[in-house]
Design a protein around this nucleic acid. Structure first.
Lengths: 327, 327
DNA sequence: TTGAAAGCGCTAACAC
DNA sequence: GTGTTAGCGCTTTCAA
């Protein structure tokens, strides 16, 4: 592999000039430029990015920390991150944290030793302190981690309110809220939205903890439906949980949407694959991912952030698990 | 950030000794060791991995090239890769190629400039030549790219044979095969297995091209089912396509599995979330991912490969889209 | 406009 | 067992 010295030699200038040329910094005469261009082509020269990084203390790696890429919520985010990263010449390092603070810590440290340029984080506030003293750009995606860290989220509260209200409009009078895990910000916001929508409406409600996992959700829903035959609506805090509830209903022979209406949250691809199609409060995941990545890159490249906290609107996606004229 | 010189100074030895200590190479006396350990702790020293890489021409990055992480087949693979990578101190760079040779090329080049240690590739043979002249360890996962490159796949042929035969046993007499895209090796192997299973059995068959995409699969299946009311079985080359077929059947009011039996391939999480649960030829995706990663790391670290071509067995997962006593 | 040379922090050959 | 020192390939300051 040719290096910068070879290029310098072959084009009859110094390495400094070649470097200036490569980085578009400082003066380089037309003749020099031409000669260098030629040499670069001749030698098929590609800058050694590691050497550059050692010198600049900056790589073009972005660390993306997600709880678990197998959870279908995250690939859509990851894809968006990757697309924007590519566009700006960055490359993304995938880290599954399993919501384990220690594992997350490990990644933060390792990637820091590797001079990553910044982090996009979709996990909880467990390591807030680390991120703050990191002195690297960080943006929080889907969940706020700290007021000082730029954040991109959906309008969870409003979305939950919207979804729940829709359930009520469609005639539900005994609604269970399959809330997500405690301490996870979007989950908290969604319960709040649910509770607000339900207040004073004379609705019988039940709020139950439920992880963002299909099997657990199905089991939980099954038990609930058996114990409370009057339940006629489920507001799930994620599509995965809604899918579990739907499966549970099917298993019990409860007709959806005739006897039970279900509404999910997220709008992942899965929601349209189910039968009936899942009515859901859809987030614009791709957009969230791209915005977060642009913010991060802005921040890496020293521009002032256009925004500090972005809330992407959600949209009620009406499909077959709720009754409605539209269908 | 403290560097190796600081540690050397603080512990009263030379940088060479510290380096030897860090890498467990060459002799280091007990006293030296103790002093160095102390200094490292004191200074909270972390080796600069970029500097190390410049010197060794090796990073601990693994490039993982997938067509599209949003396709639910790949996250399970990616997760496995990441888990093993972590275990061995590697870190994975995620690249979505969209099956686009140029995009893939771009990643190969960029990552090479960044001194990645090797690649795990789950895309087609488009860039075989590049990989070969890459002179970096590469392993192919899910698809063979070249005889010279270590490969981990499932037993696609046998799996398809098994699935198809099961459909026949359960009484199907007019089976459509939703074959995957042309030129994709696993898809080809699966059609072959299908065809073999069906041969001489007096089965009415139809083989139709069908991408690994839900919407397209649903549309294709819908048209087929409308045009050929006698179809009583679908062998899909992927769970995604099977899900599409299932949705199409539901839409047309065709009962599954009474009137139409469906069998998928892959065994992704989705298959159990559908109603009825999808009968499928399940691959052990996690295992495939771990094996591929271990092979790659062996190869990176200069050990001779334990195997050159691994075929992981598949398993028929009987659920609700086929008729059977078990249910 | 350009070049010499001093880093960036680590590894490894070689001498002691 | 240990230390000196020359790289690895690039950026950047400073002087010319």
């Amino acid at each position: 592999m040719a290096n910068i010295r070879d290029v310098a030699k072959s084009s009859g200038v110094s390495v400094a000039t070649v470097s200036r040329f490569l980085n578009n910094k400082g003066y380089v005469s037309q003749e020099a430029k031409a000669a260098i261009e030629l040499a670069i082509r001749d030698l098929n020269y590609k800058p050694n990015l590691v050497a550059r990084s050692l010198s600049t203390k900056q790589t073009k790696f972005i660390g993306l920390i997600v709880p678990d890429i197998v959870n279908p919520f995250f690939p859509e985010l990851a894809r968006a991150v990757e697309d924007v990263a590519l566009q700006y010449g960055y490359t993304v390092v995938l880290c599954n944290s399993d919501e384990d603070a220690e594992k997350e810590m490990h990644y933060i440290e390792t990637l820091q030793q590797k001079y990553v340029a910044g982090f996009i984080v979709t996990t909880n506030e467990s390591n807030t302190a680390q991120y703050q003293k990191l002195d690297l750009p960080v943006v929080a995606l889907d969940r706020k981690i700290h007021a000082s860290i730029p954040t991109v989220t959906s309008n969870n509260h409003e979305g939950a309110h919207m979804g729940t209200s829709y359930l009520i409009e469609q005639g539900c009078r005994h609604i269970v809220c399959l809330r997500g895990p405690r301490g996870v910000e979007p989950a908290e916001d969604r319960v709040a939205g649910f509770l607000e929508a339900v207040k004073g409406k004379g609705i019988n409600t039940l709020v139950v903890d439920c992880p963002f996992q299909f099997d657990r959700s199905e089991a939980i829903a099954k038990r609930l439906l058996l114990e409370n035959p009057s339940i006629d609506g489920v507001f799930a805090s994620s599509d995965i949980s809604a899918a579990g509830a739907l499966k549970a209903a099917h298993g019990l022979g409860i007709h959806v949407p005739e006897k039970l209406q279900i509404i999910g949250f997220d709008g992942i691809g899965l929601s349209s694959m189910l039968t009936p199609g899942l009515t859901t409060v859809a987030q614009d995941l791709y957009k969230m991912g791209t915005i977060a990545t642009r913010l991060l890159i802005q921040s890496i490249e020293g521009q002032s952030l256009s925004e500090k906290e972005v809330r992407v609107p959600v949209q009620l996606m009406i499909r077959g698990t709720t009754r409605s004229e539209e269908r």
